[in-house]
């Protein structure tokens, strides 16, 4: 067990709302740690629509999901936030009082945080791989059905079937082909979203007879004790064929599950966290919820609303973090104090 990390604020989720909250907190001298299940910052912006243009960010006529994430990361750089990626917050325990909140936050990677304030900016919840509707697939997961490659050795000398047409499916087709006994790529159509050079490399392998490509979908799996033996391929023409399959990798993207947030004792309304609109605090003092995960009368799931919510939550968080200090409202345009914090003075 690692030691406890002490901080002012733990932000659950490193999407746009969580990232901008770092800025608003930073101006008030409040330090933050961000925890996200994804391997990078940006949340839905980088995971669901990195290349899609967004047109409703104030002051930015057009920006991509990735562009906005990069800009936000640059904007919060002066405040040195600490990121904990590939980790999911599992437990949230209240140790303080309503006037002086204190929390112990635990992640699935075994990290523990002691913090005065928690800001839940978890969007639609945690991203998890989509599992295809194949009866009994759970019994094979992590033994012979994988949604990500952890160890290439698990695939050596095996009959591998990969389903999908994006970069993950194509990258792993190319990377596992040299170690697999056989490799079959299954996709619903003869067009791929993956990078053109990967598609070309895959097609070359097919032409050379080193892998096979099948149009269709996997509808059933057979095996015993977690070890797969074969997969049923339903072709687009309606035909059904048994494929030799000891390792199956379905790539259908990610889905959002509320996950452990439901167990933190917060009021929930249809999987959203009700907050007030003065400080965006939950029913539990010291725990705030901003961005897509909160709800209140008139709520709009817009990034710009998440920014506003973070700014107001930060004001209240200041009272918990520095109960003895009076908060003086200042503008970044005129306050040399704020400009110093931003490193521009």
């Amino acid at each position: 067990m690692s030691e406890t990390i002490e901080t002012d604020v733990v932000i659950v989720g490193a999407g746009p709302a969580g990232l901008f909250a770092v800025f608003e907190l930073g101006l008030l001298d409040i330090r933050a740690h961000l925890i996200d299940i994804l391997p990078r910052a940006g949340g839905q912006c980088s995971e669901l629509y990195p290349e899609k243009p967004i047109y409703d960010i104030p002051g930015l006529p057009v920006v991509t999901g990735l562009g906005l994430t990069d800009d936000l990361l640059k904007q919060i750089e002066p405040f040195h936030p600490t990121f904990h990626f590939n980790e999911m917050v599992e437990t949230l325990e209240s140790k303080g009082t309503a006037e002086k909140p204190s929390f112990i936050v635990g992640t699935d990677a075994g990290k523990t945080f002691k913090t005065k304030v928690v800001i839940v900016a978890a969007g639609g919840g945690s991203f998890q791989p989509k599992k295809p509707p194949i009866a009994g697939i759970e019994a094979f997961e992590q033994k012979s059905v994988f949604y990500a490659v952890r160890r290439v050795e698990d695939f050596r000398g095996k009959d591998v079937v990969i389903v999908g047409g994006g970069d993950s499916a194509l990258d792993w087709t190319l990377n596992l082909q040299p170690v697999a006994k056989s490799l079959t790529l299954v996709h619903r159509r003869d067009a791929f979203r993956a990078a053109p050079h990967s598609v070309k490399a895959m097609q070359d392998l097919v032409a050379a007879g080193k892998i096979s490509f099948k149009l269709g979908q996997v509808t059933d799996v057979k095996g015993a004790d977690g070890e797969l033996a074969s997969a049923m391929l339903k072709g687009n023409d309606g035909s059904e064929t048994q494929l030799p399959c000891e390792r199956l990798m379905p790539f259908f993207g990610l889905t959002m599950k509320l996950g452990p947030v439901a167990n933190w004792g917060l009021n929930l309304h249809e999987n959203l966290i009700p907050v007030d609109t003065e400080k965006f605090e939950t029913n539990h003092p010291g725990i705030f919820a901003i961005g897509d995960i909160n709800t209140y009368p008139g709520k709009l799931k817009l990034i710009l609303c998440g920014f506003h919510e973070g700014a107001l939550a930060a004001q209240r968080a200041h009272r918990y973090v520095y109960p003895e200090r009076k908060l003086l409202f200042q503008y970044t345009t005129s306050s040399t104090n704020l400009q110093k914090k931003l490193g521009v003075s």
Partner: peptide
Amino acid sequence: EEDMLDFAFDV
């Protein structure tokens, strides 16, 4: 939309 349907099941 055609691209996004790759993420759906039994298209």
